[in-house]
Simulated assay, not measured.
Amino acid sequence: MEGHHQHLKLPKLEVLRRVMLITLGASLVSVGLEIFLVPNHIIDGGIVGISIIVSHLVGMPLGIFLFILNLPFLILGYKQIGKTFALSTLYGVSVMSLGTFLLHTVPPLTEEYFLATIFGGVLLGAGVGLVIRFGGSLDGTEIVAILFNKKLPFSVGEIVMFFNLFILCSAGFVFGWDRAMYSLVAYYIAFKVIDITIEGFEESKAVWIISEESQEIGSAIMSRLGRGVTYLHGEGGFTGGKKRVIFCVITRLEEAKMKSIVHELDPVAFLAVGNIHDVKGGRFKKRDIH
């Protein structure tokens, strides 16, 4: 019974952890918006960008529009995106809206546009990245893109990009073109920080090597990099000859050393490196090299 009782508790702890981290993420976005970006008329893309423009034109607090404008897209996409994601997004948007509402009267930390752009972008990216990493979203744009993606010949990413470019251009007419350019920089910084937050600094890479010297290369990778390798058996498409393929997973920081090992042992080896977002199980932990 005790083991069964513990099993029931685990999901609750996981839910609590997710709620806390989504709360933290949404709060960081609130600070980035109200303490850095919005007072300096620098906007973000998506529904957040539209909310900032509407809030400025109407003269009402940003938090109201963040919630109201996101709500229809959440209802619209509820069936497509699933209950857990929809509830996580609704919670995240609610925390973000409340946070910006509470911070609305707090004076900005800086009126220097460049500093506001950098720090606002970093906080925005870290906050949005945390929310996405733990199962939610803070913007209805992605939901719109998923729905339109089925009817248009564009990917979700392309639709989001077109939508955001339109919003950032609109900022030029409302706040002036210098602010629109600062907004573009803030958006780019946020975009990059989102990636780092979701994937982590130690982004993993998958490596495939085809070489006549596969045994020597595999041994060198294990002894000099401390990484395990797997040998796969393949067949050449043109020649029909048997090929030995080395597969291994490394971190981004080890990529240059990996390439130098391969080039040193076989300058004509085929080498392919790809990004992977998650590594679980097996023996990915690095072995100590003595």
Rank of each mutant, 00 (worst) to 15 (best):
V54M: 13
H56K: 11
H56V: 06
H56R: 09
H56Q: 09
L57D: 12
V58T: 10
V58Y: 07
G59Q: 05
M60F: 14
P61Q: 09
L62S: 02
G63W: 02
G63C: 11
I64K: 06
L66G: 02
F67I: 14
F67P: 09
F67M: 15
F67A: 15
F67V: 13
F67S: 11
F67N: 09
I68S: 09
I68L: 15
I68M: 12
L69I: 11
L69C: 10
L69M: 15
N70P: 11
N70Y: 08
N70T: 12
N70A: 12
L71G: 10
P72M: 14
F73H: 06
F73Y: 10
F73S: 08
L74H: 05
L74V: 12
L74K: 04
I75E: 05
I75H: 05
I75C: 04
I75K: 04
I75R: 01
K79Y: 14
K83T: 14
T84P: 06
T84R: 13
F85C: 10
F85M: 12
A86H: 05
A86V: 08
L87P: 04
L87V: 14
L87E: 04
S88D: 15
S88W: 13
S88P: 05
T89K: 00
Y91L: 14
Y91D: 10
G92A: 14
G92D: 02
V93Q: 00
S94G: 11
S94Y: 05
S94R: 04
M96C: 03
S97F: 03
L98G: 07
G99E: 03
G99D: 06
G99K: 01
T100E: 06
T100H: 09
T100G: 08
F101D: 07
L102C: 12
L102W: 09
L102Q: 06
L103M: 11
L103W: 09
H104Q: 14
H104I: 13
H104C: 12
H104G: 13
V106L: 15
V106D: 10
P107M: 10
P107R: 09
P108W: 11
L109Y: 14
T110M: 08
T110W: 07
E111N: 15
E112P: 05
E112I: 15
L115A: 14
A116K: 00
A116R: 00
T117C: 08
T117D: 08
G121A: 06
G121T: 03
V122M: 11
G125D: 02
A126T: 10
A126K: 03
A126N: 04
G127T: 01
V128A: 01
V128M: 07
V128H: 01
G129S: 07
G129A: 10
L130I: 10
L130E: 07
L130S: 07
L130V: 10
V131Q: 02
V131P: 00
V131I: 08
I132D: 02
R133Y: 12
R133S: 14
F134Y: 15
G135D: 06
G136N: 08
S137D: 08
S137C: 12
S137I: 01
L138H: 02
L138I: 08
T141K: 03
E142S: 09
E142R: 06
E142I: 07
E142W: 04
I143K: 01
I143E: 01
V144R: 00
A145I: 02
A145S: 11
I146N: 03
I146M: 12
L147W: 00
F148W: 04
F148P: 00
F148D: 00
N149P: 01
N149E: 09
N149T: 03
N149L: 02
K150W: 03
K150M: 03
K150N: 01
K151E: 03
K151M: 02
